[in-house]
Computed example of a mutant assay.
Amino acid sequence: MRLDSVLQLQALNEMMKGQLEDYPASKVMILGVAGGNGLEHIRRDRVEKVYGVDVNAAYLEAASTRHPNLAGVLECLRVDLREEPCRLPAAELVIANLLVEYIGCSCFQRLIGQVGPEYASCVLQINAEDGWVSDSPYLHAFDVLEAVHHDLDGKALEKTMLAIGYRVIQRTERGLPNGKKFLRMDFRRP
């Protein structure tokens, strides 16, 4: 994701900075936190709790290790979002970047219903014609995800969120060098 021909890691990092700065939230949940990309943008003077959620324990350990300055603020939760959404605490802002494509809109809808945030911000990957995985030496590392990945264009997510009272308040696209795009969609519950 970091390769110059891909630049996804860098783009997601910048987008998460915006997600964290755009909304007044003292409790933030990051679904699919992985190794903690973007957590360096957490401002301790604004945020009292960050829940980093992932199914992979090694990713959670990496996120915690990479950000010792967030001790007492960052709480890593190992949760299978498709099986255990009831284990999620309340938060005012939920961030889910490159996640909805794997868990599906209806699962995401249930998660948002459980957490009850005022704001939800997602980044979706809009794919080029050559597929959802960027050409790189690591191409085949994603083969196992083929069974759970779903292409989304944003319309299905918007419809799903509207059904539970969340309206789109921001929509921005960012082009990537490989012809793909990131679509950031932010929602608010009135």
Rank of each mutant, 00 (worst) to 15 (best):
V28M: 08
D4N: 10
N37A: 09
P190K: 09
A71E: 14
L60G: 02
L74F: 02
G175W: 11
A163F: 01
R188G: 12
V144I: 05
R189H: 15
Y119D: 07
V133P: 09
V79F: 06
R110M: 08
S26A: 13
E75A: 05
A57M: 05
M15K: 00
G36W: 00
T65D: 04
Y59A: 11
V47H: 03
L98C: 15
D135W: 08
R2K: 14
G113L: 04
S106Q: 10
L145C: 06
E75N: 11
E158Y: 01
R78P: 06
D135K: 15
A147P: 01
L81C: 11
R188V: 12
V79I: 13
F182V: 02
I164L: 09
R171Y: 08
V168D: 03
A71W: 05
C86L: 07
N37H: 04
V79D: 09
G35F: 04
N56M: 03
A163M: 09
E129H: 07
L7H: 05
E48A: 03
M161T: 07
I30P: 10
R82P: 01
I164M: 06
V53I: 12
L7I: 07
E101V: 13
V148F: 06
K180G: 13
H149Y: 15
F142P: 08
S64C: 01
I169P: 05
I164K: 10
D80K: 05
T172Y: 10
R171K: 05
F108N: 04
R167L: 14
A63G: 01
K155H: 13
E84R: 11
V168H: 08
Y51V: 00
D143Y: 06
Y119P: 02
V148L: 15
F108E: 02
L157E: 04
L7S: 13
A58C: 02
R188P: 11
D143I: 12
Y166W: 07
Y102N: 10
E118H: 14
R43S: 15
Y119F: 13
R2C: 01
L77T: 00
Q10A: 15
N127K: 04
M1Y: 06
I164D: 02
A63K: 01
I164A: 05
V55S: 12
L7C: 15
K180A: 15
E75L: 06
Q170E: 15
E83S: 13
Q109P: 03
L20E: 03
H140Q: 14
R167C: 07
N13L: 07
G18F: 10
N69V: 02
E48L: 02
Q114T: 15
V168F: 04
L176H: 09
A71T: 10
S121K: 03
E158G: 11
N56V: 05
A91R: 01
V94Q: 07
K49N: 01
L70M: 08
V148P: 11
N69D: 14
L81N: 11
A11W: 03
D22C: 10
M185T: 12
P85S: 08
Q8V: 09
D186I: 03
K159C: 12
R174V: 08
S106T: 10
Y51D: 00
L99K: 10
M15I: 14
F187I: 06
P190M: 07
